[in-house]
Simulated scan of single mutants.
Amino acid sequence: MTKPLAFITGNRTKLKEVKCVLDHEQKDVKPGERRIELINEKIDLPEIQGTPEEVVIAKAQDAAKAYKGPVVVDDTSLCLTAFKGMPGPYIKDFINNSGVTAISRMLDGFDDRSAVALASYAYCGGPGEEVKVFVGKLSGTIAKEPSVLKGYGFYPVFIPDGMTETISEIGDTETIVSFSHRGNAVRSLLKYLKSL
């Protein structure tokens, strides 16, 4: 029996956003047409240092080996223009150690508060198989203060281009994934998975 496709994450917000995209994009699937379903598995994976693509490829290879089947993994980056793309894929550790307010504070004194959020998704069909990467980007600016004291990741300080509110203030998952870095990446991934 073939193992089902597993989304390897312990992050409930990421899982909720991915499920929201899949449900929305597949709401008109007719009987007999292929519908992509993911199960959720939590596997602790080592996080290497490298570019966002190198990080997500390594995660996919390690996850496929541990799960012994087809997997989807993701990695999120926040690239600050003033810091030449840093903290990039290290944003999770940065926020866990310094807090989201530190992102705003580190840009005090800089004229350029622009940033790019990246969601890198990778699919691997099983141990030793080729990894396919799908990247979604969202440009924006970093607010001078967090919009809320609690919120997912950098969402309390990230204002998407063309908007006046942070992602946390927008709040509604379906609205967020309609334009977000994660939504864009998952739609590309879904198109690929349906072609298999």
Rank of each mutant, 00 (worst) to 15 (best):
T2S: 12
K3Y: 09
I8F: 04
N11C: 00
V18W: 00
K19I: 01
L22M: 03
K30D: 07
P31E: 08
G32H: 02
R34Q: 15
R34G: 09
L38V: 15
K42I: 04
K42P: 00
K42W: 02
L45C: 08
P46K: 11
I48G: 15
I48C: 14
P52C: 09
E54D: 15
E54N: 13
E54W: 06
V55T: 13
I57S: 05
A58S: 15
D62S: 09
A63D: 12
Y67A: 06
Y67R: 10
G69K: 08
P70H: 07
P70S: 03
V72D: 03
V72S: 05
D75P: 09
F83C: 10
F83G: 07
F83W: 10
I91E: 09
I91S: 07
K92G: 02
K92A: 03
N97Q: 12
N97D: 07
G99W: 00
V100W: 00
V100E: 00
I103Y: 10
I103T: 06
R105N: 15
L107Q: 06
D108L: 12
F110V: 11
D111S: 14
R113E: 01
A115P: 09
V116H: 07
L118T: 07
L118R: 13
Y121M: 15
Y121I: 08
G126C: 04
P127G: 14
T141W: 03
A143C: 07
K144V: 06
K144L: 10
P146I: 06
S147F: 01
S147M: 06
G153K: 06
F154T: 13
F154W: 15
P156F: 10
V157D: 08
E165H: 11
I167F: 04
E169Y: 02
D172P: 04
F179K: 11
V186E: 07
Y192G: 08
Y192L: 02
K194N: 14
